[in-house]
Write a protein that binds this DNA or RNA. Structure first.
Lengths: 250, 250
DNA sequence: CGGCCAATTGATTAAACTCAATCTGCGTGG
DNA sequence: CCACGCAGATTGAGTTTAATCAATTGGCCG
């Protein structure tokens, strides 16, 4: 059994996504790592576009994305969808369960999603017994908040072209921090209509903007994969602020 | 000195806004109330449109709005502003200071803003010694998150007219929970350009939509005050979901 | 070979922006 | 007390962006 002494600067590649993510933020002891791993015993698969959290309904558990993507979204009365954010491997959903019983958003799977289902009581255990992990979770919350702020900036003040560049950069940066990119390439398991609903645009317009981006040599697409051809140039175009996603070591 | 026994269901009107707000969420002991009040010793006044938190800069303290309004916002490279949210009396800014040193947004005063400045060390004290208050702060965070989600829905999927209705309803509801409304009336210390920057629209368009709303008999304006003529009708028009702002008693 | 879903295209419409000018209320200095 | 200046509100005209509607195409799976 671990003595709680820090044994490694970075968790190995084989760790779960949440361990990799928190391990990039702060030093984790073996005890903390094994506790984090033990949280993730119950796993479920969620089908594409199927809800696992529903707006207005009681939240049953906290979820950690172990592989695949999820979306958080809201619906208007007439069925229009606004995607609020994408949850990538290592991201946590429903951490607020102990303070707000009912969910204020929907969450659904994208493509092949696998979740670790965490008993709410165990998140309380974290705050009582694992201050470092508790801080880690708070850091995740603050980060989500920053990401949602960037989403609002995109929605309100960027052109369609810049919106797309900005979102692709966000996803690429976030995926890179969890080793889910292959150089400039990453898997983008989204239909054009998902991008449209994330950016407050129509699918037709997304289609045309993507064509423009390809013609401008900014991106290349292959099946579900996309390549950012010139990161620096795209950062300039989209006025992207990488510091909002930066790691922060306590 | 208090024994920590709960003595009153609701804090009196004379309490500070944060006490009223958390007191509406859960039962607070006299000890918790007096601790909350003791946090707010250092107060500052912030002039209209003057920043007290800056994107990318070190966050110096946690702030509680004691009177007036603040805005959280981001800027694009070319100076366009996106207001992310309004901080009303009782709202907390920079609660994440212990987990994310640099701010990921700007915050500025609106009209006459007064803030309580809280030493970051004291927010740690809260999490160690006052579990109920700690839960209250987490509840505030979850609520901010829901409000920001609604803002994203507005920005991405509502028409200009509905955006305005939706925002006015949010403000009216939030102000009502802290006793800052006068029936259907409330003070709206915003210029048209502030509304524009909150809703991702131009000031010219806001002007025309406000005229349409007045002509439709939905609102009446007097100086800085505004009256929601028919709340139910406006809720219907804006597809407003009041449950996202609902109080929740632990 | 169908059938289906997603991507693409073309044409038209609608929403909101931009630019520039004018108006209004209010505070200030002469 | 009035002229002036200023910021914010209002108006008008023309332009741009993106939505909508309606086909059509392409790729994949059974």
């Amino acid at each position: 059994m671990s003595t709680g002494i820090v044994t490694d600067l970075r968790p190995p590649e084989s760790s779960s996504a949440i361990v990799r993510k928190l391990g990039a933020m702060t030093l984790l002891s073996e005890m903390e790592i094994s506790f984090l791993e033990s949280l993730q015993i119950n796993r479920i698969q969620v089908e594409d576009q199927v809800d696992f959290i529903q707006d207005g309904q009681d939240l049953k558990a906290t979820f950690i994305v172990t592989s695949g993507w999820a979306i958080r979204y809201l619906l208007t009365e007439d069925g229009r969808r606004q995607i609020l954010s994408f949850a990538l491997p290592g991201d946590i959903l429903g951490l607020h369960i102990n303070f707000q019983r009912k969910s204020t958003y929907n969450a659904a799977g994208i493509h092949d999603l696998e979740l670790a289902v965490i008993d709410p009581l165990r998140t309380i255990e974290v705050s009582q017994k694992y201050p470092v992990l508790s801080a880690g979770f708070s850091w995740c919350t603050a980060r989500e908040f920053a990401i949602l702020g960037d989403q609002a900036l995109r929605l309100g003040r960027l052109s369609a072209f810049k919106k797309l560049c900005h979102l692709l950069l966000e996803l690429w940066h976030r995926l890179r921090l969890i080793n889910e990119t292959d150089g400039p390439w990453f898997e983008l398991p989204l239909r054009q209509i998902d991008l449209a609903d994330a950016l407050g645009l129509s699918n037709v317009h997304i289609n045309r903007q993507l064509q423009d981006m390809r013609r401008a040599g900014l991106i290349t697409q292959q099946k579900n994969w996309i390549k950012i051809e010139e990161v620096e140039k795209m950062i300039e175009i989209a006025e992207f602020d990488t510091s909002h996603l930066a790691e922060f070591r306590i």
